[in-house]
């Protein structure tokens, strides 16, 4: 993955929104720099108001940056033509509700330059893909939020783009809807597409993303592999033993005994990660049986909250 070319490149992007009369200007982005590589699922993570959507809208040409440079597929984001290779699902999308699902997809396909001969086939394929074939002739005003989200996904893919940008794709969906969107993201990745996903749902990031950037108060706090980030943070390990003799417990040092819980001859211990080998050696030598050994990793949420708190203190 690391050898792949960058399809999204953001360098020192800054943006300040002018306040209205009597309001202060708000700095939304400050020297934001990151890149997204071809074929990866990239999570752009941050709390509400951190600058995720502003960054995404700059990439989509909806907002102009004050400073810095952003390119997608090697093109400046202020250009237009490269967008035939880019799909975008905005947060809580809204479409022309006087159109049917089929009509709205045909409209977007036409705007994207999909040839007339291919248009109908492409629309039907996508309706089936997102599970809306049965509702293709219903007006969008009758659609549920989950169905609109799926129309949003379909319109983002109607021209078969190489890169797909999703802004909070799981927002407001029930667990089933979230799973469907997750499955769609995995499927896009399997088809070789690059997926850029704005989100604050960290479990989705852990589950889906190859790389993440964490943005807080308009500044990037971290960019890299979320799993590598978590692996470096193993501090303690929970060990469960049975058949433990009292002599074994007495032989444990004070730091281990502090994390001791037990009923009868079954005990649970929380030991420093480095002390696990020593403990297991002693336990096995004393005739105890090892039930489980579970390293306790920091969750992405705890790391994320730490990043946010650090941002808040500055």
């Amino acid at each position: 993955m690391s050898e792949r070319r960058a399809v999204v490149s953001v360098e020192a992007l800054s943006k300040q929104f002018q306040g209205g009369i009597g309001r202060r200007a708000k700095r939304a982005l400050r020297d934001v720099t990151f890149s997204v590589r071809e074929g990866e699922i990239f999570g752009f993570v941050g709390p509400n108001g951190a600058g995720k959507t502003t960054t995404l809208k700059i990439l989509m040409g909806l907002i102009r940056a004050d400073a810095g440079r952003a390119t997608v597929l090697g093109h400046d984001v202020r250009e237009t033509e490269f967008r035939r290779h880019v799909g975008f699902l905005p947060e809580a999308p809204y479409f022309y509700d006087y159109l049917t699902g089929r009509e709205v997809l045909e409209f977007y396909a036409r705007v994207c330059g999909v040839e007339r001969a291919r248009r109908r086939e492409r629309v039907e394929t996508l309706l089936e893909w997102v599970g809306l074939s049965h509702a293709g002739d219903a007006r969008l005003r009758t659609y549920s939020k989950g169905m609109l989200q799926r129309v949003g996904i379909a319109q983002a893919l109607v021209h078969d783009p190489q890169v797909v940008f999703l802004d909070e794709p799981m927002s407001g969906l029930d667990p089933i809807g979230r799973k469907e969107i997750r499955d769609l993201v995995v499927r896009l990745h399997a088809e070789g597409k690059t997926v850029f996903m704005n989100t604050h749902i960290l479990s989705d990031v852990e589950m889906l993303c190859h790389r993440v950037a964490i943005i807080v108060q308009g500044e990037i706090r971290y960019e890299g592999d979320p799993h590598a980030m978590l692996e470096g943070e193993v501090r303690d390990t929970d060990v469960v033993l049975t058949g433990v003799a009292p002599a074994l417990i007495e032989s444990l040092d004070a730091s281990v005994q502090g994390g001791l819980r037990g009923v009868g001859d079954r005990i649970e211990l929380r030991v420093p990660h480095k002390a696990v080998g020593d403990l297991l050696g002693k336990a096995l030598a004393a005739g105890a049986e090892v039930v489980s050994v579970s390293p306790r990793r920091a969750t992405l949420e705890s790391l994320f909250l730490t990043a946010v708190e650090q941002g808040g203190r500055q």
């Binding site: 989509m60 237009t80 033509e81 975008f88 809580a92 999308p93 479409f95 705007v111 994207c112």
Partner: peptide, 13 residues
């Protein structure tokens, strides 16, 4: 109604 987001993100000036 935010329909402009999906339109202007397409290859249209």
């Amino acid at each position: 109604r935010r329909t402009i987001f999906t339109i202007l993100s397409k290859p249209i000036a």
